[in-house]
Write a protein that binds this DNA or RNA. Structure first.
Lengths: 244, 244
DNA sequence: TGCTGTCGGTACGTTGGCGAACATACGTGC
DNA sequence: GCACGTATGTTCGCCAACGTACCGACAGCA
């Protein structure tokens, strides 16, 4: 493992909401033994049913948590990014993953030993509190997804997904295909095509092959359901670390 | 507050999975200052948007966590009972509830001070681990509900709900109306009536006014989706406290 | 005993989203 | 610049579930 300079480590820390909440004294041991890796769209960080190897703290990008059904479909139940970490089950004491973790928006992830993180959490109240806030936001997100899936239309849900993704990507250009998006929403590919067509004609998005650009965020907000705002409000952010 | 005898306190403890995991030395302070109350079907323990007054550890019965939509519907996102507690948001550091907590199956709930529970959790590794297992099971449950709501039929979801409810109630006689059940599933009341009619004709249930009796549990299992088994397996139980 | 409110059963037209299929367009590599 | 693989666009019949409505049955209460 290459030894990293202090500037780099500090850069890692400031880019994830949870690492940022670490007391200075504890940060070094965690950062020193972990590693940072870059991931591309479609990379599978953890597979449902497999052991969870470590905890992954995203520094950028967006990661979908999905569940496979016995009918062969895939359903996204939540997304996470620099406000949280991947491998929640392991942190909570479970060996096996209950979800897939798929990279949606490329980015970097800092990997750490679960046991070490648990020890630090037990000793560092601020870190522990930050993790708890994230756990609650994850619960809110999966719950709201349950609601949204039951009562809102494909159009509303697609708009919501695009808004969340644009928020996380830090850009309005989203590199994704209709096929991919349809899997996240667990709807037909052609339903996505139809809905994106509506958005395009309304001037809310523009598209190239494999690329959807959000042109009018406010317009999309007008078409989506309240779930967007609820999940947005529940998600901790770097610029307001103590908001709850 | 009436002072309770030690036998009663011990009875409280052994009836909730989390309290059961408490180290002996810690149990007294928690039990001594809390109170046990009985609730009936329909009672609202916590309301979405309201402050969470305390943590409620069910000793029996079943409690639904629901979310209201701006369109006036209500959707159940999870249920809990003696394996967990109500007020998870408060435990995780949030003041306001993100869900309603509605009593489905009557039973008793032990109420405790959030701060005291947090302090004990920080000091008692076994208790903390049990709470973490419960938090994970709650995540699995809300996630699976999201999946189920998206891809499974009203018939499958109704069968699943009845099975879960019968498990928790400890009896096959469920006191509930079609109207009530339709709200939990966020479907039309008449859809529930139709589905229950199918179950009845197949000999899987029998009904009186306001009462649904599960007559053939295995038969219902055959009609429901894999979500039942997944949630069942993820839920900690008193008879296997360390299973994960 | 009869009244009244709640609950359960059923019907009917409507519709959002599905499965399946086919056509077109893009763009990378040969 | 052509070919092939992949992505997008569109159609058609179908069906589960919807909204709405009405009616009968039950049960508690006057």
């Amino acid at each position: 493992m290459p030894s990293l300079g202090r500037a780099v480590l500090s850069g890692v820390r400031s880019r994830n909401n949870l690492l940022l909440s670490l007391t200075d004294g504890r940060i070094d041991s965690l950062l020193a033994q972990g590693r940072t890796e870059r991931y591309e769209r479609g990379d599978l960080l953890v597979k449902l049913g497999d052991p969870i190897p470590d905890l992954g703290f995203p520094l950028s990008g967006m990661i979908s948590l999905t569940i496979d059904t016995s009918e062969g479909q895939t359903v996204e139940v939540a997304v996470t990014g620099r406000e949280g970490f991947v491998g929640v089950g392991r942190f909570l004491g479970r060996e096996i993953s209950d979800t897939n973790a798929v990279v949606q928006v490329p980015g970097e992830v800092f990997h750490a030993e679960p046991r070490l993180v648990q020890e630090i959490a037990a000793a560092d109240a601020g870190f522990s509190a930050a993790i708890n806030r994230f756990l609650n936001s994850l619960l809110v997100e999966t719950s709201q997804t349950a609601v949204c899936n039951q009562v809102h239309s494909v159009e509303q849900r697609t708009a919501r997904w695009l808004l969340h993704a644009a928020d996380r990507a830090g850009t309005d250009e989203l590199q994704l295909t209709h096929e991919f998006l349809s899997q996240m929403l667990a709807v037909r590919r052609s339903s996505v095509t139809t809905v994106i067509g509506i958005f395009k004609r309304a001037g809310l998005t523009s598209t190239k092959r494999g690329l959807i650009t959000v042109a009018d965020r406010e317009g999309l907000r007008g078409l989506t359901c309240e779930c967007y705002a609820i999940v947005y409000a529940a998600t901790p952010r770097l610029d307001q670390p103590s908001a709850m």
